[in-house]
Design a protein around this nucleic acid. Structure first.
Lengths: 112, 112
DNA sequence: CTTATATGCATAATTCACTTATGTATAGGT
DNA sequence: ACCTATACATAAGTGAATTATGCATATAAG
């Protein structure tokens, strides 16, 4: 598990990008997908996830669709047009930040 | 300038690594060095810097030496033995975090 | 049959690293 | 005189997270 400190500020970027890559998803499904993609290193907690999804929706980046699965409620989230352009911005910003950090910390960063 | 959100959680790592690479330094000098290394993209504010240095000192990672430069006070910071091992841990942790984020965001990260 | 685990959403209280603002003081340029 | 740079420090406020709690269905285990 990664130090939660480092994760701060990256949650919205993760949510937007995962929704871009995997389309319509519901909250719990996102936590499982992120867990999988991160090899169990990033475990999203509900207390962080749901308020963050709500905020992205309130900001117009996401839209929702509530579906009844038998007696269970599922709330699907997907990107709005505005949200799609946000994904690019956020990911670009993150990559640039990492490059800067690479220079400051004098470390080589590459995929394993 | 990078979004300050992303910087959260990386400040102590930056301070420790810069002190490792450049030896004994004082607060203001660190801000200038980081500004330089980041091409002006990371501007440490005093309100973040000093409390963070104090905390690293309280935690035993840094030791200090106060020097009078004429009538001006300068407080030099350097790594303790314990601090040196911390640097490695923190930098390794950061690099691993970046790798994980690369997988989750599906982006290629490399030095430009 | 009741207990634990997984699925699924949500919000309130709290924490904590930061930002913003302020304070003190010396030095040098215009 | 005034502005900028140098140099430290702390207090108030913000905001995104953690932690804790609540509600509810489904399923497997013992």
């Amino acid at each position: 598990m990664h130090s939660p400190e480092l994760l701060k500020g990256t949650l919205q970027t993760i949510l937007l990008k995962v929704l871009k890559d995997h389309g319509k998803m519901y909250g719990y499904e996102i936590t499982q997908r992120v867990k999988e993609l991160s090899d169990g290193r990033i475990l999203l907690t509900e207390g962080a996830l749901y308020p963050s999804l709500h905020k992205l929706e309130a900001d117009g980046h996401l839209k929702t669709e509530t579906v009844m699965m038998g007696k269970r409620v599922r709330k699907y989230y997907s990107l709005t047009t505005e949200g799609k352009s946000q994904v690019k911005e956020r990911v670009t910003e993150f990559v640039e930040f990492i490059r800067t950090m690479g220079n400051v910390l004098q470390v080589e960063i590459s995929r394993q």
